[in-house]
Every structure is written in structure tokens, then in C-alpha cells.
Amino acid sequence: MAVALGFEGSANKLGIGVVRDGEILSNCRRTYITPAGEGFLPKETAQHHREHVLSVLKEALEGAGVKPQDVDVICYTKGPGMGAPLATVAVVARTVAQLWNKPLLGVNHCIGHIEMGRLITGAKNPTVLYVSGGNTQIIAYSRKRYRIFGETIDIAVGNCLDRFARVLKVSNDPSPGYNIEQLAKKGKKYVPLPYCVKVFDLHINIGLGMDVSFSGILTYIEERIGKLKKDGYTPEDLCFSMQETVFAMLVETTERALAHCGSTEVLIVGGVGCNLRLQEMMGEMCKERGAKLFATDERFCIDNGVMIAHAGAEMFKAGVQMKWEDCTITQRYRTDDVETVWRDD
């Protein structure tokens, strides 16, 4: 039995959760929401996390019904992410680890998403599409590592959608992506937008991967927003066209990875992953190929503490220990840098 406490704060979500051998005991979250037209900046985001971290911690422990002495390991997001928010939350994790005299583990944020997705959905060895505000990767597991089959060469798909929301002055509450999704449902007219996938060699022996790019489509919209509106495209039409285009890029790349790896499972994780249109399109592709789609809802797709707790617990059970001086944070931390000692396949 291992009880793990997890802290997440790499972006604008502050999450703390408790997990006991894959059973979720609590999953608490606060989101820093900025006014429409604005994004979140490191300093203010860190401030938000500082303000709420203690009350969320209390809530998580009480919700789980565990006392500090019941906790076996404390886990926190080591990276990747925004420096100031990461550091804020890491300081709290380090402090409670010392206060309660518990081992401390720094967890790769992306690994947290993948392991959480596998836990919730039961997917065994899926090809993973990880899509969020900071990351866009197509990942396949091979020989003790989550290997990146394709990724964005510039901005993440979630970042593209967030900034698109700012152009349209769409509200950030509860999240820009959610509001775009609702608007898109009412969109009818499709306007063709730049579609950019690029084939690339991989460092694994599975042939060619496929990368995506989202900065061009954003610039395209930013430069033409006035004209598009004058031409009769409503914000709803633009949201619809945006989603149809970027999601098609993601599904095409995932399909290529699926074909190469001969995999029969697709798992979508990350904040953008709770978009139902993306899930629908991916499901359609899977149906054509005879594959199975696994996805989760906003509780586990969007950044949360319990995913860090769960991935940390897997590491802990596999015997991973981290020296105190290694328990730092890093803004850059690749998914394929982590050896997955807890996976034996």
C-alpha cells in the first residue's frame, strides 16, 4: 500500500490530489482565470498558486481522509512548465516533505498525463496524443521510454486555441478552449485555413514520424480577422473552421503513428483532450482502422494533482529515489528523457 500526495502547478492550474494504489482519494483544483483577451503571465500565476496552495492542500487531505503520517511519498511537478509557478509549488512540496519527513519525488508533467490516462481508461499500450496549452506530442512506448513520434515544431495546439480566443475576445472562463468548443457547435461555414503537417525522421526504428505546426494558422487568422468578419464569417464559423483544421492535423498525425506502430489503441490526454469534437474525429479514424479510442473527461484531462501523485507512486513502487539536491524544477523536460522503470513490457 502506498499513499501518494501530488502537487501540480506548471501552468495556470493549481492541483493537489491523493491516490492510494491507483484509487483516487481526492482531486482538488483551482484555476487562475484571466480577463477575456488576456493570457496568464508567470508572475501573476505564481501569485495565484501561492494564495491558494495551503487551502487546496488542506482540502485534498481532508477530502481523502488521510493524515500527513499516512502519506508515503510526496510528488510534485518538476517540469516542463512556467518557471515561477513551478517553483512556487515545488517549494511547498519540499517544505511538507521535510516537515513530515517523507520522501520527495519530482515528476515529469507529461508522464503524469500519460500514466493518469492509462489508469483511468485501462488502455494497455496505446499510441498517445498529448495535447495541451504547452504541449502537442504523439507518443508511442518502446523499450522503457515514451518516445515522441511527432510533435509541434512551434507552438502547442492549446496555445494556438487560447490565443485565437484572445483574438476573438472569447471569455477565459472556465477555459478558452471550452468556449471555442461551444461556439464551434453553432458554426456552419468552413473557411480553409493553413494546414501544416511535416514528415520527419525519428530516432527510433519505426520509420518516419510526422510533425505539426500551428503558428502559421494563428498568424493567418490574426492578420485577416477583420476581412473574414466582413466577408460574413461569424465568430462561430471561425471557431468551427479552426477546430476542424487543427484537429484534422492531429488525427492525421496520430493515424500515421498508429499505422507505423501497428497499435490498436489510441489514448488522448492533456487539456485539449476533453474537447468532444476532437474525440469524435479521433473515434471516427479509429473505427476505420479497427482501433479503440480511450479518452477522459476534464477532471483528469486538464492538469491535476492526482496525475502527479499517481505517476510518482509508480516511480516510488519501482524503487526510484531522488536526492534532495535533485528535487529542483526545470522549464524544459522532455517526455523521452524519463526512463519508465515501472513498465516491464
Binding site: Y190, Y195, E244, T245, V251, E252, M281, M282, E284, E288
Partner: peptide
């Protein structure tokens, strides 16, 4: 034809 893709986009691509 890719059923998941919007028809106009699919034709264009």
C-alpha cells in the same frame, strides 16, 4: 475520403 475530416478540407488536401 477521410470521414473524420471536413469535406471541403478533405477535398482541398
Amino acid at each position: 475520403k477521410k470521414a473524420y475530416r471536413h469535406e471541403i478540407l478533405d477535398d482541398l488536401l
